[in-house]
Structure formats: C-alpha cells, structure tokens
Amino acid sequence: MNQIDPVSLRLFIRVVETGTIAAAAEAEHLSAAAVSKRLSELETVLSSQLLQRTNKGVEPTGAGLALTKLARSALAELDQVRVQMESFSSGVRGLVRVCASMSAITQFLSEPLRSFLDEHPNVQVQLEERLSPMVVKAVAENAADVGIFLPLVAMPPNLEQHGYHSDRLALITPKGHPLSLRKAVTLPDLLAHDLIGLHTGSAINILLNRAAQEARREVNIKIQVTSFDALCTMVSTGLGIALLPESMARRNARTVPLHICRLDEPWARRQFALCVRSRTTLPAAAQLLMDHLLAPLQAGSEKERQP
C-alpha cells in the first residue's frame, strides 16, 4: 500500500475505539493478522508510529491521536460524498434541461414546474424557449433532456415520443373589424385580410402556410412579432388579425380589446408531444420531471378506459 485508503483508516479508528487489535478484527469480521498488516502498512505510508502496546492492549501515540481526529473528519467527508451522490441518483438533486415551444411554455408548463420544484427544491430546471423543430434537434443532440413541441417534422428514430397536451387555435380581431361579427371563421375568411404573424418558423405560421398552399392561396402577413402579448397589442390597435392559441387569446382579451372567433379548420386542433432520448438513460432528476409532466395525462387516460 503506498496511499492512504478509507478501509485502513476505518480499521485504525476501530482499533483505537476498542483498545485491542483482536477486538477490532472481530468487530470487522477480519483476522487479527489482516488488521495488523493494514496498520503496519498505514504506519509505513505515514512514516509515523501510530499505536503503542500496553499491558491492556494498544493505545494511540501522539501521531495516532492526531490521525484519529483527521481520519474521522476525512471519513465523514467521504460519507457525505456518498450521500450527495445517492441524492443525485434518486433525483433529489440535479439539473434538468428543458426545451419547449412558446405555446407549450405559456399554456402548459408553469403550474407543473411549480409543483415539481415544490416537491424537489434541490432540483434546478433550465427552461429554454425554441421553435418546435429546434426543440427536437436540441434533444437529439443532447442539448436538452426533455423537449415539448408540436410534431411538425419527422422525428429522429433515436428519440422517444409521448403524447402531451392539446390546444386549439383561434382568430383574434380588433373591435369593429368585419370578422368581429362572426363566431367562427374558416381559412378563406382569414386569407381575405391582412394578418399579423409570429416570427418566421413558428408552428402557427407553418400550419397556416401549409393550409394556404393546399388551398392554392397566399398569406399576407404585414407584421411579424415574437410574443403573444405583442401579437395581441398589434391586433387591438387595428393593424390586422391573427391566429394564436385560444387560451392565450382569452387571457389577453382581459387586458386589451379583442374579439375572439373560433377557427373552424381541422388543423386548428393541435396535439403537442414530449420527447426524450430514452427515459432509462435520463438523469434521475429528469426522469422524475418527465414522469411528473406525464402523470396527469396518464391518469386521465386510465380514467377514460374504466367502465
């Protein structure tokens, strides 16, 4: 032995506590010869005599007394390493990287994240907003542990996908707009007016442009913004009409004057998804968060299946 090891330190402390090598050996289920060999090697490594024989057994020398204090402190620190690492493996501590689309963040994540962090206060969640295709890319490239997105493009084969929440798109218009007299609208109604859109690559823009291409119509977007709040503000001032999730439309209609119309199109209902590389290889904290996010949906599915 040319290094100090925890086993030898624990044996040394046991000998000091019991007062004899034989008693320490019995307590540790070792032979007295094996314990003596460990102690001799420890003295060699430290170049110090640690124990002296008495007519009652052994007792620590001055160096031995100093080592006893140091060894107890060192072993306590090592025990803390084990405890801390066990807390990481059980998900009590850790960092979870989450990427999600703006719609997912604003509609679905605030309450589940709050309740999760209440249960696991030592877990840190790093939440980043990205466009849905970029969410998938981030998870596939291990830049995120969990992704929540709209499945607008083909999923990479190495990702695990789960159904998440759904929403419905609605049309918002300023008060007094011709469409503000309508309770429901269709694609041709939209395309007859100037639109305010979200930034390029947003899921709503992709869905709208796909629908317009299938109908062989053009989309006239006059202004593009980067948030639902800005979108609603632009609409309320009469600059155009816009599509956004119905829940966000109703939330913003409390503070700015808007009219909300139902979008009567099949693509207005959107189904979000949650993806990971593999649940079994996720860090423990990420596994716990994934299960927490999916639990209400799984409970609802089981309830629907009950007779």
Results as ranks from 00 to 15, higher is better:
217 R>A: 15
172 I>K: 01
176 G>F: 03
202 S>Y: 10
187 L>W: 11
176 G>S: 07
197 G>M: 14
173 T>Q: 08
156 P>W: 13
224 Q>A: 13
175 K>C: 03
195 L>M: 15
217 R>S: 14
189 D>M: 07
180 S>A: 15
178 P>A: 12
204 I>Y: 00
182 R>N: 08
181 L>R: 12
219 V>R: 07
197 G>F: 14
230 A>C: 10
207 L>V: 14
165 H>G: 00
221 I>L: 05
162 H>L: 06
225 V>F: 11
164 Y>W: 10
159 L>V: 09
232 C>Y: 11
218 E>G: 08
205 N>G: 15
219 V>F: 04
167 D>M: 09
197 G>N: 13
163 G>Q: 12
173 T>P: 07
171 L>Y: 02
156 P>D: 09
209 N>A: 12
184 A>N: 12
185 V>D: 02
180 S>Q: 04
214 E>R: 15
224 Q>Y: 08
191 L>K: 10
165 H>S: 05
162 H>Q: 06
185 V>Y: 07
207 L>D: 01
190 L>C: 05
224 Q>L: 10
170 A>V: 04
164 Y>A: 06
194 D>F: 02
172 I>R: 06
159 L>H: 01
156 P>I: 03
177 H>G: 12
198 L>R: 02
169 L>V: 01
166 S>L: 02
165 H>L: 08
225 V>Q: 09
221 I>N: 06
213 Q>I: 13
179 L>S: 02
217 R>G: 05
200 T>F: 15
161 Q>I: 13
228 F>T: 00
188 P>F: 11
205 N>Y: 07
226 T>F: 15
157 P>E: 09
189 D>Q: 09
166 S>R: 09
190 L>Y: 10
231 L>I: 04
202 S>E: 12
173 T>H: 03
231 L>C: 01
223 I>C: 06
205 N>E: 15
159 L>Y: 00
207 L>A: 15
207 L>S: 13
183 K>R: 14
191 L>V: 01
227 S>W: 13
169 L>H: 01
201 G>Q: 09
183 K>C: 04
224 Q>I: 11
204 I>S: 04
202 S>W: 05
232 C>K: 04
170 A>D: 06
175 K>D: 03
195 L>I: 14
179 L>P: 07
208 L>C: 08
155 M>S: 09
230 A>Q: 14
195 L>E: 01
170 A>P: 02
166 S>G: 13
208 L>K: 03
155 M>G: 02
216 R>F: 08
160 E>C: 01
212 A>I: 08
195 L>D: 04
172 I>T: 03
158 N>M: 04
229 D>N: 10
164 Y>V: 00
219 V>L: 07
214 E>Q: 15
188 P>E: 09
219 V>K: 02
162 H>P: 00
168 R>C: 07
168 R>P: 01
159 L>A: 04
209 N>G: 02
